[in-house]
Amino acid sequence: MSSLEKLEKIDRRIVYLILIIVVAAVLLRPIGLPIPISASTKKYYDAINSLPPGSVVALGVDFDAGALPELGPMLEATLKMLFNSDKKFVIFSLWSGGPAVSTIYLNKLKDLIESSGKKYGEDYVLLPYIAGGETAAAALAKDFKNTVKNDYYGTSVDKIPLLKNINTAKDFALLITITAGTPGVEEYLRQWVSPFGIKFCVGALGVSAPNYMPYYTSGQIYGMIQGSRGAAEYELLIGSPSTAASSMDALSAGHIVTIVFILLGNIVFVLRKYSRKEVKS
């Protein structure tokens, strides 16, 4: 077996090992590369920032445990911004794991909530999982309080002051979904954005962001956080760099390893092709 052949059939465990070593090395000794802010993240930030005081934001936490490393920092930063602002918000979820994820972050931000003076039920509220995917999104948009009878802790929605004037999607100033897929962006676009004309922002997985670009470029999605990179940008914008910002060097290292392997694979492929041609001639 020639050396080129050996390189082409390299044991995948060696590839895995190289990736682990490079990413771990950068995590342990960060380089501190600058993180430029993209236009889509800036618009997400501006959408919340420009709302008049007292506006109510609908925050869809539409993901569960699997997507937490990528979407968790976006949710945390969004909650931080909302708690530090004069806006009110309603957290709900079309994903069964959403309320548990929200609870984890609300517990994590306990000190911030206390210092912000925000009161549960008056300034923010957590609703339970609403089953039914797009149908649930449609039901919520048309008749919010009849679709969700109680909040996550079992209190009737009629007894929650914040929800007193919330009847349809029109009563929200902004809709945000931090989503790992379906139900998510397209369901809200069809059932909330098109019929009610509500401003819409999205926090998406890096792998899903290209799917949502047509909606962003057309203006149906106003602002969008794209993957961990977007989350890091957003953390910097709100002045609270955290998990996402600290993982950016590791992300760069992982991408560089991938590109090096793609190039290496192609160099070996081309060299083997020429060596085979030479043998034939």
Partner: peptide, 10 residues
């Protein structure tokens, strides 16, 4: 990929 990672702009 290089757009997504900060190393690209660097």
């Amino acid at each position: 990929m290089l757009m997504n990672a900060p190393v690209g702009a660097a």
